[in-house]
């Protein structure tokens, strides 16, 4: 079986700024991976290339052996770091939308999760708070049976209680052969759910390791290692 994600000398420039520089990276299946780095380190650029929203200048990025395109979008479930759903839609419309476009979308699961949040599917997105909207987005994304979940800052804008809900939703809903790629700079909160971490800095991968290895070899938590590596 192919690695779920493989990058070879992946490079992306914006006019004169190098956002990703010769990135080599391989992600195996069945892992929860933290993509960690400060703002502007290249996290979002990598995620955008992965989802076909940007085209690299050179190098390749393969998902299940294929370049980003309609075929890979079928197996990647992406949570952007934005309110990306049209706000005139009702929550039930968004479920209908996902059901129509993604064969792997489980509408019952989504409805069930909404019910447990006591969220009325007839409400319009416009009327929801930012945190609730983020939960709806996460429910949609995690209700797909994808091979790769790509979550950009899933806990960025919400309070600690909501963070726990989101992390729980993630770890209880992905299937065993799927990989979750989770980008954030809030490391302490997510450390406990991660299998692997990738540190990215100035468009380059500075570390890729399992969390256990970091604890064993370095004798410290990912959070404190992060603070060390990215010391200003």
């Amino acid at each position: 079986m192919n690695a779920i994600l493989e990058c070879n000398s992946l490079t992306k420039k914006f006019s004169n700024v190098v956002a990703l520089s010769n990135v080599d990276l391989t992600l195996e299946r069945g892992r929860i991976v933290g993509l960690l780095g400060p703002n502007g380190s290249g996290k979002t650029t990598l995620i955008k290339i992965l989802n076909g929203l940007l085209v690299p200048n050179s190098g390749t990025l393969l998902i299940d052996g294929k370049k980003p395109g309609p075929d890979t979008k079928k197996i990647v479930s992406y949570l952007p770091d934005k309110s990306y759903l049209p706000d005139w839609m009702r929550v039930s419309d968004t479920i209908e939308f996902y059901k129509d476009f993604y064969e792997d979308f489980d509408a019952y699961k989504a409805m069930d999760m909404l019910k447990r949040l006591q969220l009325d599917p007839n409400r319009k997105l416009k009327a929801l708070s930012k945190g609730t909207k983020e939960k709806v987005q996460l429910i949609l994304v995690m209700s797909r049976q994808a091979d790769l979940y790509c979550l950009d800052e899933p806990i960025g804008g919400v309070d600690p209680a909501a963070r726990d809900y989101i992390l729980n939703t993630i770890i209880t809903n992905y299937n065993e052969n799927a990989t979750v790629l989770l980008s954030t700079h809030l490391i302490a909160d997510i450390e406990k759910v991660l299998d692997d971490v990738i540190f990215i800095k100035d468009g380059q991968i500075v570390l890729q390791s399992s969390v256990d290895d970091i604890r064993m070899k370095e004798g410290k938590s990912v959070d404190s290692l992060f603070r060390e590596v990215f010391k200003c």
Partner: peptide, 13 residues
């Protein structure tokens, strides 16, 4: 706009 994130990640060209 931000809705582009939804539309351009659908399995469509």
């Amino acid at each position: 706009s931000e809705e582009g994130y939804l539309m351009f990640t659908l399995p469509a060209k």
